[in-house]
């Protein structure tokens, strides 16, 4: 238990350090752009410009701004105001986009894990069969082809040619299915390969031979004695998988026009909405850190040989 708390504290301090570094770098970059966010547009009367600057706290000296924002984030979790979306705070934008992105990510991950492990087990158990060759070819395809290519082809096929899914929108299961499939496919392919390698290695172990020798049915041996060991690499891949799904959702939300965090982030980046973009980067950092810590914990629970450090 003390291990655990120590570990969590250590991770937390790393996260804070990282966040501080990301914040400082983004702040310096943001402030080194000449002018202010409103100078590019049509010229506004000086009085209004003063009002604008006061609202976004741009009239304070840079160090004061740096400190104020930091205090706001630490004490109130207040990420400031978006400079492009009228009357939206960054927190509101994130609160709107977060559920969409998380739902999409969860669907994609669940699909990837189920599909990937099943494919990996089948191709390892029936090694060198047609099914194995086909599944592994599909896995190479899934790893090599970028997910936005898969998504565009999937739209072409399943939305326009065979009208199976709606083209866009958000809310129903059939609207989530296609983006989640495209998002999960590369991860599923990777998991399938990892599972297959792990299974093949475990199948040659002594305890598996013993299990077969004492007459257990094949099904029991594979489910009880082979699969748990074979899944260890898969569990450790889940951390990178989460990162991959989150970055992948940037493009997929754009392609399918979903109102998630990813599409907000891309819009913020293309429209040079610095406060929103910075708030998003900080949020993503926290998210990834939290997910990685969870995965590490899960790994330590599954495999007692692993010590948290």
């Amino acid at each position: 238990m003390r291990d655990l708390i120590g570990y969590l504290l250590k991770r937390l301090s790393w996260m804070l350090l990282t966040l501080w570094a990301v914040y400082t770098v983004s702040f310096v970059l943001m402030r080194s752009v000449p002018g202010n966010p409103f100078s590019g547009e049509r010229s506004v009367p000086p009085a209004i410009e003063r009002q604008l600057k006061a609202r976004y706290n741009l009239d304070a000296p840079p160090l004061q701004q740096y400190w104020d924002y930091l205090v706001g984030v630490v004490t109130r979790f207040d990420l400031g105001w978006s400079t492009r979306l009228e009357d939206y705070s960054v927190n509101q934008v994130i609160a709107e986009g977060f559920p969409v992105s998380v739902t999409l990510a969860i669907f994609a991950l669940v699909f990837a894990i189920i599909f990937g492990i099943t494919a990996g087990v089948i191709s390892a158990v029936y090694r060198r069969s047609t099914a194995d060759v086909m599944l592994m070819a599909a896995a190479v395809f899934g790893i090599a082809v970028p997910n936005f290519v898969i998504a565009s082809l999937a739209i072409l096929l399943f939305v326009f040619m065979i009208q199976l899914f709606p083209a866009g929108g958000w809310g129903t299961l059939s609207q989530v299915a296609l983006p989640a499939f495209c998002l999960g496919l590369p991860v599923a392919a990777y998991i399938a390969r990892l599972t297959r390698t792990g299974m093949l290695e475990m199948l040659t172990r002594d305890h598996v031979r013993t299990a077969f020798a004492k007459g257990l049915p094949k099904r029991t041996v594979i489910m009880r004695h082979v699969l748990p060991g074979a899944l260890l690499p898969v569990v450790s891949y889940l951390g990178p998988a989460v990162a991959r799904v989150l970055t992948g959702s940037l493009v997929l939300e754009k392609i399918f026009a979903l109102p998630g965090m990813g599409s907000h982030f891309i819009n913020a980046a293309t429209q040079r909405d610095y406060t929103l973009a910075m708030g998003m980067v900080l949020t993503y950092t926290v998210l990834l850190f939290a997910m990685n810590t969870l995965v590490d914990l899960a790994y330590a629970i599954i495999d007692p040989r692993v010590k948290l450090q």
């Binding site: 570094a21 002018g35 970055t247 913020a268 980067v281 950092t285 850190f289």
Partner: peptide, 24 residues
């Protein structure tokens, strides 16, 4: 190690935004 824990794609997008500014 510290750089590893930064979600780079997001930072790069932020950076590209900054570099795309006319004045920069």
């Amino acid at each position: 190690d510290m750089l590893y824990s930064i979600p780079f794609i997001f930072v790069v997008i932020f950076l590209v935004t900054f570099l795309g500014e006319e004045t920069v």
